[in-house]
Structures are given as C-alpha cells and as structure tokens.
Nucleic acid binder design. Structure first.
Length: 283
DNA sequence: CGAGAGTCCTGTGCGC
DNA sequence: TGCGCACAGGACTCTC
C-alpha cells in the first residue's frame, strides 16, 4: 500500500483536477469497500465543489462546499486514476472502465477521477468538515512525522517504557502517523538501529537520530513521487521512482549499501510482516 | 493496558 | 499449462 509519501504524491496529483472544481457526477459502483460506503454518497457528492485537498497520515481529505469532507484511504492496493482534462492540464484520454473501479467522480473541469482498489482494504467516508479530525479513523492518530509536534523529545518520551521492537513501535500509527513497512525498514537502516531492538533499550541519542532519518527518507520519497512496486502510481499515471533508492527493502541476500559495511541484507518476519535489515551495521 | 495473532480481499510470482 | 502456496505498501478486532 501507499505509505505517507505515496499518499502525498497522489494528493498533489489530484489537486489540479479537483480543487476548485464541482463534482458533476458521482458513480458509486458497489456498496462497500472495507466498510459500507456512506449513505447516499453519490447524491451528497454531486454538485459539491472541492475547496481543497489535504492529507492526514495516509488519509486524503477533500473539503467540500457542502460542509462535508470526503475521507479517502487507499488501503494496500488503492489507486486514484485521473483521465480527461482540466483547464490548463491534459491528463490522458478518458480510460475505459476496469475491474475493481469502485468510485468514479466526474469534475466540471473535464477530469475524471477513478478509485480502483483490487483488494478493497481501502475506505471512503463522508464527515462534517468541522468535526473531521474527530472521525474514528483519525482521532487516535499520532503526530505527523513531517510536522512540528514530532521531534526528538516527543519520540524519546513516546518510546519510554515500550517493550515492543522498534520496528513495531514505528508502525504503530498512534505513535507516529504515516510510516509503513517499507519506510520503517529504510529509516532503521539509515539510523543504524536493529528492527528487533526493544524500544525502551535504545539510547536517547540514537532515538533522537531517528527523527531526522524519518524526515529525510519521507521527504526524499515524496520528491521522487513515492515508490512504485505493484499498485502505486502517481495520480497522473506516472511511476514513482523512490524504489530505486531502497537500501534494504526487498534486497535480501544483497550487499549492504552503507559504505564500508560489507554486510548482507537479511529478511526476517516480525508481527507477520517482512523486515529487511543489515545485521552488520544495525544494532 | 500492551502485545501478538487473525482477519478482511484479490492478484502475482514461484516451484513443482 | 495448471496447481498450490507464499507473499503483498494496512490496520482493525479479538484474545491473552
């Protein structure tokens, strides 16, 4: 699935097609994704103008002129595909309908937004804009890793007393919101911390070093348009290319890329998810 | 409460 | 070519 950089890339790609434009037609092609879609979704969207698109963690929020916000989560395999055109933008010719196209939005500028999600772990909901932050899916999320609240002091405090492996802690969206399996692996390699290490047994200085490592990896990944492995595309159809910058993810058996390390990347399983790391330079 | 396992769903790639 | 299995970028829900 899309992690924070992929979601941010999608959000940015949607902006020219959606922001300032009215949804002229909404086609809701099945009653549910991960959960039931909201009651009357198509009619509540039709005629609404998209005021802006924002991101919270791995969620996209479209604030509408109807005082509601459309909440979107891409799950593991969700994609937003833009076709048609918007004033000053040509995306691609309107694409024929495909399997797993679940929601289609036509904008008055001429763009069509198609939400496709094979595995249907994605979600959409409509919520009053004024209380969007209180939505059950958002209310317990931790700070944004690229925001001001997330800093060395916060992370040191948050990890204190946690016995869980640092990999699991960083995947916990209540601790910090937006990291997923790939970027946690990459961050831990850059910080030189073993993914299996107990969270409460990492020296404060090394925990502090995680903060710039997280910021750097996420920022670089956003600049690269995210990572395209299977499903992720930028909304304009382009592939992201941060996967070429992976130092550990998917590289089991290959040499560690840290200069002078000479170790070999290993794959282990933690909490049912693959972890990639270098046993030689991650401690 | 924290931590781990099970769960949802479909597609793909691999070994045989 | 077909079959079965492992695995996939998430995260909620249940159990201990």
């Amino acid at each position: 699935m899309p992690e924070l950089p992929e979601v941010e890339t999608v959000r940015r790609g949607l902006e020219p097609a959606m922001v300032g434009h009215v949804i002229t037609h909404a086609d809701v092609r099945r009653p549910d994704l991960r959960w039931p879609l909201p009651e009357g979704m198509a009619s509540r969207l039709t005629g609404a103008r998209v005021l802006n698109l924002r991101r919270r963690s791995k969620y996209i929020l479209a604030d509408l002129s109807s005082s509601e916000s459309l909440l979107i989560h891409l799950g593991m395999s969700g994609r937003m595909v833009i076709s048609g055109e918007a004033p000053g933008h040509f995306f691609q010719p309107i694409v024929p309908m495909e399997k797993h196209d679940h929601v289609v939005l036509d904008m008055d500028g001429g763009a069509r937004i198609t939400f496709n999600d094979a595995r249907r772990f994605g979600a959409m909901d409509l919520v009053a804009t004024a209380s969007a932050d209180a939505h059950p899916l958002l209310v317990a999320l931790g700070p944004e890793p690229l925001g001001n609240v997330f800093d060395e002091t916060y992370l040191v405090t948050a990890l204190r007393g946690r016995k869980t492996p640092i990999k699991s802690a960083l995947l916990d969206q209540k601790l910090v919101a937006g990291l997923g399996n790939i970027y946690v692996c990459e961050v831990l390699h850059r910080a030189g911390i073993a993914p299996t290490r107990r969270s409460d047994r990492i020296a404060a200085a090394r925990v502090a070093a995680l903060v710039p490592a997280i910021r750097t990896v996420l920022t670089e990944a956003i600049a690269a348009g995210g990572s395209s492995l299977r499903d992720h595309r930028q909304a304009n159809g382009d592939l992201g290319y941060f996967q070429h910058s992976f130092r550990v993810y998917g590289r089991a058996g290959q040499p560690c890329l840290r200069p002078g390390c000479g170790g070999t990347i290993r794959r282990i399983v933690q909490a049912g998810r693959s972890t990639f790391y270098c046993p030689a330079c991650q401690r």
